[in-house]
Amino acid sequence: METLYLIFIDPFVQMVVEPAFLAEVLIGGLMSGVMYSLVALGFVLIFKASGIFNFAQGIFVLFAALNFVGLMDLGVHPILAFVITIGIMTALAFAVDRLVLRPLVNQDPIILFMATIGIAFFLEGFGESIWGGDVRPVRVGIPDAALFWEAGFGEILVQSSDLFAGVIAAFLVTVLALFFHFTPVGRALRAVADDHQAALSVGIPLNNIWVIVWAVAGFVALVAGIMWGAKLGVQFALSTIALKALPVLILGGFTSIPGAIIGGLIVGAGEKLFENYWGVPLLEGATEEWFAYIVAMIFLFFRPQGLFGEKIIERV
């Protein structure tokens, strides 16, 4: 009885009694959810355009951030460093396309997936042997102060860097949406995502498109890396956290950009709520490590295509 009470009733009583704490937990969760969304966004872009599940996206985030911070530590102006890093990520996209994807064209998706695991390991070693494995703080002037917001039911503590990250993410998604809808390249990308062969037959060069998609994903990774680095410092652990983008994708669907965003927010908020109301009192904490994966696994039983994904149809 006691346990059932603690599982099913007590957490909700707590939420009602202390709405300010609930709001803080929720906001904190949503903000980390934004970060997952940003990584998941890179996955979705590549998956939509080329059907490749890019396991290395998490490392892209780390690698981009490492380059950015490394350049800044050398005394390069942040904006210049940003531009150079975009250049590096584009070069990387080109290299990946020529050295890895081309030779593996027409292979099983699972083979390509394993190849991206190889890319992930290579980049991890490469980035760290150039820039070193220390934790590096990002100083780009993102304001980091505790703001107190006076709501009707009490004071809520919000980190200004979190708000800033939220704004940047919203801005990035808007830019991407505009890019996909109103530029020729964006239209070509959507055409390729819809149907490779039809796109080829109307004269869209598939090769360049893949490079562009990987470069755009690299750009998204850079933004995510800067945001994340500003919060936690640029460190190796980023790549492990970035793995959480995988359950986010399961939730949101592999082919949907809004799905990636909403999935990220659900996972971020859900794991913080679970940790604070169920994890710490009942399960000795640290449930954030697995919560997202278990939710994704349960989700797979009932709706394998995710919330917004296309229904999976297979033919022999």
């Binding site: 050295l99 890895v100 030779p103 593996l104 292979q107 083979i111 394993m114 190849a115 695991i117 190889g118 890319i119 992930a120 390991f121 290579f122 980049l123 991890e124 070693g125 490469f126 760290e128 042997s129």
Partner: peptide, 13 residues
């Protein structure tokens, strides 16, 4: 790390 990554890609290709 680099060698492992490169080997994986090499063998897959």
């Amino acid at each position: 790390f680099m060698l492992f990554g490169a080997l994986i890609i090499f063998f897959l290709i």
